[in-house]
Design a protein around this nucleic acid. Structure first.
Lengths: 153, 153
DNA sequence: TATTGTTATACTCTATAACTATA
DNA sequence: TATAGTTATAGAGTATAACAATA
């Protein structure tokens, strides 16, 4: 029985995770922690509450992730200027470097994988991915479609 | 900036995980545990050592997963007939039912996602996925290509 | 000596609940 | 009264190291 579209997509997902794990080797970074850096890279300094919402995890979870990232020098906590309950989290110089590297590697991977697809197949391939993603969004969480629409900010 | 091929593939991976999590809701199953059931479904009764190799985790990890699956009735431990060091793990009736359901849902998802792609794009889409998977295998672990070749058993 | 599975220990990610300080 | 972040507690997955039983 040859692999189906779903088999291939699942395999690709696993390979992506393995690729990321390989990238993190020897650093204090993990998938969850880089997700925090990624959000901060796109948003600038934000409260932990905002991070919790963006990452779809609990505030308690954010405390742990920020603790770890602060201890290893990637982010810094700073008092919120007007709301004394809140804490702003921002990237340190080390954190900025890490995200810069991540962006570069992401772009390189995009090039490599795009090149791997035969030129004549690329448009159809992109349309197929878009169609599959749209259907999955619909299946998994109807409200996620709205989230994606807001992403344009 | 519109999403690239890699962005889409990452999103699809996340959506798959969310879909699986939704399926497990209310059961004692998790992603790691269903991976065990999936192996047993394909292999029949095997030792924990074999499971560890197949899942690419440590034997200690397998002990924990099998403990959990045994406690919740999905698998059963049985002495190895000839090697008294080893333990055979096999699916119970409950475990068989669970894997049957998993296979059915997997097939349904395959249909739904295949149908979501425009008929004229399907061949190119499949070729593109294959090309991307092949390139990723090459990038991530040169030896994985050999693993896949052995999969025909 | 090598292998199988376990106990012991530890780290990461995740969650809920209760609490403090502040709005 | 509600919100931001923390402490307390718990469970899942993962790992290494040491060990007992068996090969």
């Amino acid at each position: 029985m040859q692999p189906t579209v779903v088999d291939r997509l699942i395999e690709i997902g696993e390979l992506f995770q393995r690729d990321m794990a390989r990238t993190f080797e020897g650093t204090a970074l993990t998938l969850a922690r880089t997700a925090v850096l990624w959000v901060l890279h796109g948003s600038g300094p934000v409260t932990q509450q905002t991070l919790a919402t963006a990452l779809e995890v609990t505030p308690r979870n954010v405390t742990g992730l920020v603790d770890a990232l602060e201890a290893t020098g990637f982010v810094r906590r700073r008092p919120h200027p007007t709301d004394r309950r809140a804490t702003l989290v921002e990237l340190t110089e080390t954190g900025e470097q890490a995200t810069t590297t991540m962006v570069r590697e992401h772009d390189e991977l995009t090039s490599v994988l795009t090149d791997a697809v035969a030129p004549a197949d690329r448009d159809a391939f992109a349309r197929g991915l878009e169609a599959v993603a749209a259907k999955l969004r619909e299946l998994v969480a109807p409200e996620t479609a709205a989230d994606t629409a807001e992403d344009e900010s």
